[in-house]
Design a protein around this nucleic acid. Structure first.
Length: 181
DNA sequence: GTTCTAGAAC
DNA sequence: GTTCTAGAAC
């Protein structure tokens, strides 16, 4: 909820005239930040118009600069994703900046959590911008994305399937380290 | 988001 | 018996 942003007061990572980056209160990986527009009339991807392209491109650039900054400093071993949830949990547009070590967070507890960051439910910022530029709007079909959110657990690296979150995370830690070495 | 719990899976 | 999930209630 928008009111919950109040509790982020002490967790501002970056701020400029058009957007603000905060630490997610429930990080689903080692690093999990949100980039929010300061223009709170932009509530979701549904209401994004070509008028918002400039702002959303700026948010994307800020996210990319944050990733570069993190990788240059203490998180040089991590890789990151920058994107939007197709069906967001919070009202007010927010762009996720998240490291891909999803096995590392105790906050990632449920299948929906896993699927929301490892499947196409997570839509890269670049893809959203390209769609908005080409089509003038961003449509997220509810049925398609609900299905992605509810699907069985699958490793995004090797596509192996697992029945439970603990087994999924245990595998992913190994798979992630293997891909990385 | 959290806690609680029934029932499935192991 | 223990682990885990999903759904309800908050």
């Amino acid at each position: 909820q928008v009111k919950d942003l109040a509790k982020h007061k002490d967790s501002i990572y970056f701020k400029d005239s058009r957007c603000i980056a905060i630490y997610d209160a429930y990080p689903k990986a080692t690093v999990h930040l949100l980039v929010l527009p300061r223009d709170t009339s932009l509530l979701s991807l549904d209401c994004a118009t070509p008028m918002h392209l400039d702002l959303m491109q700026h948010m994307s650039q800020v996210a990319d600069r944050i990733v570069a900054h993190l990788k240059a400093a203490q998180f040089r071993k991590l890789s990151f994703k920058v994107g939007y949830h197709a069906i967001p949990s919070m009202r007010l547009l927010h762009l996720h900046v998240i490291s891909e070590d999803f096995h590392a967070s105790e906050r990632l507890k449920h299948k929906k959590h896993w699927n929301s960051f490892t499947t196409d439910f997570f839509v890269p910022s670049s893809q959203v911008l390209a769609t908005l530029e080409r089509e003038g709007r961003v449509v997220m079909p509810a049925a398609k994305y609900k299905a992605l959110e509810e699907q069985g657990l699958e490793c995004p690296l090797c596509h192996a399937k697992f029945p439970t979150i603990p087994s999924m995370k245990k595998h992913y830690k190994l798979c992630y380290d293997k891909v990385r070495q």
